[in-house]
Design a protein around this nucleic acid. Structure first.
Lengths: 168, 168, 168, 168
DNA sequence: TTTT
DNA sequence: TTTT
């Protein structure tokens, strides 16, 4: 066993934060990772769209600081799940279970020239966004007290993630 | 863009070697990569089964030296392809396109104590298995002159790989 | 053999661009890579300072686009050189020979809100900074015609890099 | 911050196991990592010799199962320490601090055909060599009760590692 | 279903 | 559909 993936790309959407029945946080998002420039094919730029899963503290940090379009570095391992869909067919899902996510762009401050300290977050005690400084109306962490961020708001829809999927 | 994967695992089957219409070699195999030991779940050991694709020289080297059950290290990038299946549904396929494969076990020689030099093979000019020494009836490279290894033997079946998939 | 390093950090100085006697471009710079936050030690943030070497086209691209303080991702392999210093003592130098460098911050345009397309550059045919768009007086590529950038200006000082160090 | 190294190579010597004054286990060894084959230089094969450091449980597992000449995969981060030597000169030491080590060869059993299960060991609770099966006089774990393995036997010599070096 |  |  050795299974290590490192990706840099941009979020195609805001992360989705859920909670397992046992109350464990999970966030999911997709990273668009540009392929190396293939000179012959004059066609437009191509990318791989890679699903990322993060758990616990790191999930909440990602949900708070990452947004659609943002550049991020992700470190983790490849995981292939499979399940039977409602037509009785086996479906295979490949994702990267991240244990380290690095935010490569600080949200632009109000009228600002941007570029503060870049942030990282890991899942091994050193998470929490460590010293994230500038927060502002438009670009700071969301999710404090506004009800539409309530993770249980999605309870109506089935979640296909159980605690058994917990990788640690 | 940055997209790097490194895996160590065992082949679930012998590699399959094909050729594109333009004559470019492609090999495919699946690597069983043991997951990190999860102590709670007393259940049996788990693994991720990860599809690997290799092209050109490296494809032929892999087809010659790798076999079911063999341990290998694979370096490459994650790629997500998608196509429409015969029911008009879009299917997503995630694979690792390898540019470096390392053979971590030399095939056991006849009565041998095993463990010769370990082999690697890259796709950047340094491939070819560079100096692979011991070959023997049962464990050396196959594919020389025996017709059932003829890559065109599979021509009857459609190949879902076109030259457009060439990653370089 | 398998030897892969991936780093994200900031340049401690502008890159130094030299040329070997045979005319091959080499650039060197140091990356400050923050260590994972160690909670106990309340002391200030620590970093590892890691020497990077890049060759050929990629060297020139780095010299053109990277600057002190800029954030970059570097992919390559660890290399340990050793030489005898002028006191007859053997000195060991560890560096990362990069084959892929990604510029994680576009230089801020004049009064600009920054954040254009992020750039990457590889050493395998896909280099050249591929379509870098915005250049401006203060932040675009330097090195065109201004003499103090002449790589041979440093000829007086000995260069401890020979063509034998060429990794490809 | 992102700092990831993955190496495969052979130990140049048996690992050295020490203990810090506070009783924390540290093991050190050097990995010979073959460089990619450079076709032009007909000279002999070259390698990089890379110092590895491992802490705690993983240190003891390495000391027990790794030996000179054995093939191993190492995952960790690059670290650059520096200290003043006895001539008042600043010396820089680059090492890989490993958090995952994989034993790629099981020790050959007595008359055995070799190739048992391959072993790994991590530093995050899943260490301990998890289910290592076959042990024998000549190739099993050492260090049980034989005095010359006593870690404090080296106490006379100064150790240049303090608890401050603890990376977690 | 995709990002800049 | 999976390897040891």
């Amino acid at each position: 066993m050795l299974n290590r993936v490192i990706l840099i790309g941009r979020l195609t959407k805001d992360p989705e934060l859920r909670y397992t029945p046992a109350g464990v946080a999970v966030a999911q998002f997709t990273l668009a990772v540009d392929r190396p420039f293939s000179r012959e094919q004059s066609s437009e730029r191509e990318a791989d769209f890679i699903p990322i899963v993060v758990w616990r503290q790191l999930a909440e940090t990602c949900a708070n600081y990452l947004r659609k379009g943002r550049l991020a570095a992700v470190e983790g391992r490849m995981q292939v799940r499979n399940y039977e869909n409602n037509e009785g067919r086996r479906v295979y899902v490949t994702e990267v279970v991240a244990d380290n996510v690095r935010f490569l762009e600080s949200p632009n401050r109000e009228g600002g020239a941007s570029q503060g300290r870049d942030e990282f977050a890991g899942n091994s005690g050193n998470s929490g966004g460590g010293g994230y400084g500038g927060s502002s109306r438009s670009s700071g962490p969301r999710n404090s007290g506004n009800n539409n961020q309530d993770p249980f708001a999605d309870d109506g829809k089935p979640i296909d993630i159980s605690d058994d999927d917990l990788p640690f």
